[in-house]
Amino acid sequence: MDVPLPYYLCLSAVLFVIGAAGVLTRRNAIVVFMCIELMLNAVNLTLIAFSSFLGSIAGQALVFFAMAVAAAEAAVGLAIVIAIYRNKKTVNIDEINILKW
């Protein structure tokens, strides 16, 4: 592996920040959801990079469980989006504020 570890970590940090910026700027709930997936994947890349460079399987096992939880989160999150759209006819998160106060 002739690519040093910090390169992978920097790439992962850049992807995470792009995802975070997307969560903060976009107004469509589904796009916000996709940006969260991007952030999850950035963290997965960090875990796999450390796992490979340290020669330990623990990081990759953690990524395996993170993927399973991401799949569960996707199912429940999209079901919530569908339920909200059915009630309020919008997915704009500025108008979805029933839990605000």
């Binding site: 592996m1 796999i48 796992s51 490979s52 990524v63 993927m67």
Partner: peptide, 8 residues
């Protein structure tokens, strides 16, 4: 794959 994590 580049990190040799084939299954993932």
């Amino acid at each position: 794959l580049l990190l040799r994590a084939q299954l993932l």
